[in-house]
Each structure stands twice: as structure tokens, then as C-alpha cells.
């Protein structure tokens, strides 16, 4: 953990232990705390501070079952802070504040089928959940991962996706919006995979993360398959300046996404999710 209870606004410097280019605009930073430890729950995020530039919320993308292991974040370059972050190298220092927020429902999912639907960078916040599902594979029934990327070149964690499908008895389906090069796989939005995926809707839990519009259609499709709102969990994104309930930026109806989320049981937010500009 790296939140001072005395002053939760202070950031703690972490050394960058490794940098990995994932795709043309995404990268994974491996961080090392001073005592080498960092425990968190899948779904939680950290506030990452780039010296002098700014601080942004980024989900933790590493394996939570190994708290002494690697702490990684996978980010996409979209603006000022993430651009500066992308230029960072091994040995540089990044400020870390966290972990914050709610977790994916991995306990609730025990004994059930698990359906994970993600789009784009949305796979990163779900990777810790996938690690945990794999670590305790026999506690869960079917595990289905549906993942959509814009193009084949933008598929995150390619090697791992293959390994998860091959070695760990996960049903992995990847689709791209636009096929390029030698792509022979699915083409089309990720929601088209839902009707074909093999799972038992009466006993399944779904975890969804991606752009809001993608989540909207995904929830509709999951509903059509018979998964009720109580068994759908989504990770919401809102502007965040503090992550500790002080700045007000992340509000979504009565919720503070930084504390009540980012992972919500969908029925809790359904009344607000459908509305424009909330």
C-alpha cells in the first residue's frame, strides 16, 4: 500500500523497474516500491504522478496473487500526463498513491461461470482478475474472455491471450473492428461475440470494462442472453483529481467513482447509466 493515512494527498516515489511497449500507443510500466511490497485487489487503481506534469488514475494490471511480485500499470497515451509517462524509462521515478477503489467480484463468482467482456485498454484493469481466476481456476466453472481491439496491431497482451486460451482452460475470443495484415480472426464489435459464447446465463457473473458506449451495448446483449443486472459488474471512468472523495470530480449521480467504484454492480448504477450527461 502507498496511501499515508496521515496525509492521503502525498505521493510516494516508486522506481521504474521495466518498461514494455505493448502497442503503438500503449505501454506497461513495472514499478518497484521501496520495500518491494504492494498489495491490492483486482479492479483497483493507483494515482500515478509524473514529476511536475500531473497525476492520473491508472488501473493496476499485475498479478494480485503475488503481492511480492511485480506491480504493473498499462496505459494508453491520450494526453499530457500519459504522454510524459510513455517517455519514462527504467530507473526513472514515478509517484504512486493508492490502491483505491472497489474490486471485481471474484468471491461472488466462485462456483459460477465467468464472462469477461472488454474493449481496448479495458483489458488492463481486468488482467489482475484473470490472473486470480487462473490461480484458483478450479473454484470457477467456465471462464470466457471476449475482447475487442480496433485493429490486430492494437491487441494488448497478445502472448498472454494465447497462453490463457491454450494452457488454462479459458475460452478466449478476440475480435477487431478493422482487419489488417494477416488477420484471420473475428471482425466486428465485441458485442457480436456475446451471443455465440458458451456459458450458462442462469449461473454466470459478467465483468465489463471498456468505453461507455461499448459497455452500454454489452449490457444489452448480456441481458438478452439472460444475465440480470445484479450479476453484471462494470468499471466506470470519470475525471479524477484526488481519488479520496475530496475533489468532487468523479461524481456519477450520488456515487463517487473513486470510492464507491470504479467497479459497480450494474443494478446500483443502472438508473444513472442510461441518462445523458450525468
Amino acid at each position: 500500500m502507498s496511501i499515508s493515512t496521515e496525509n492521503p494527498m502525498l505521493t510516494t516515489p516508486f522506481r521504474i523497474k521495466g518498461v514494455r511497449k505493448e502497442t503503438h500507443d500503449t505501454f506497461t510500466l513495472e514499478l518497484e516500491s521501496q520495500n518491494g511490497k504492494f498489495s491490492f485487489e483486482p479492479g483497483q487503481f493507483n494515482m500515478l504522478y509524473v514529476y511536475g506534469i500531473g497525476e492520473v488514475p491508472i488501473s493496476i494490471s499485475s498479478d494480485p496473487t503475488k503481492p511480492d511480485g511485480r506491480l504493473t500499470h498499462t496505459a494508453r497515451e491520450v494526453g499530457v500526463v500519459t504522454k510524459a509517462m510513455k517517455q519514462m524509462r527504467t530507473g526513472d521515478t514515478l509517484g504512486v498513491r493508492g490502491p483505491f477503489g472497489t474490486r471485481w467480484p471474484l468471491e461472488e463468482a466462485v462456483g459460477r461461470d465467468v464472462v469477461i467482456v472488454t474493449g481496448g485498454i479495458g483489458l488492463a484493469p481486468l488482467r489482475p482478475a484473470l490472473y486470480q481466476l487462473i490461480a484458483k481456476r478450479n473454484q470457477y466453472r467456465k471462464v470466457v474472455l471476449l475482447y475487442g481491439a480496433r485493429t490486430p496491431d492494437e491487441i494488448l497482451y497478445q502472448k498472454e491471450l494465447q497462453k490463457w486460451g491454450g494452457e488454462f482452460d479459458l475460452e478466449v475470443h478476440v475480435t477487431v473492428d478493422r482487419a489488417t495484415g494477416a488477420w484471420r480472426g473475428n471482425v466486428g464489435v465485441v458485442t457480436t461475440l456475446i451471443s455465440r459464447a458458451l456459458f450458462d446465463p442462469s449461473n454466470a457473473i459478467a465483468m465489463v470494462c471498456g468505453p461507455e458506449i461499448m459497455m452500454r451495448y454489452t449490457i444489452q446483449e448480456l441481458g438478452k442472453r439472460g444475465i440480470s443486472n445484479e450479476r453484471i459488474y462494470v468499471s466506470m471512468e470519470r475525471n479524477m483529481k484526488c481519488a479520496i472523495g475530496f475533489c468532487g470530480h468523479c461524481q456519477f449521480g450520488p456515487m463517487f467513482v473513486c470510492q464507491d467504484g470504479p467497479v459497480f454492480q450494474f443494478n446500483q448504477i443502472a438508473p444513472f447509466f442510461g441518462k445523458q450527461e450525468v
Binding site: 494527498m9 497525476e55 483529481k241 484526488c242 475530496f246 468532487g248 470530480h249
Partner: peptide, 26 residues
Amino acid sequence: CFCTTVEDLTDLTGQHAERWRKWDSC
């Protein structure tokens, strides 16, 4: 009303940085 934003600054040398919190508005 309690909302705030933050501003991160550095001096000209880049050796000193500061983080400020300021009132913000929805």
C-alpha cells in the same frame, strides 16, 4: 461547495516541483 482541482508546477530549473489544490466548480 467543496470541489477542487490540482495544479502541478515546476520552477525554471525543473529541480523543484509543487502541487497546488484550488477551488474548482462543476
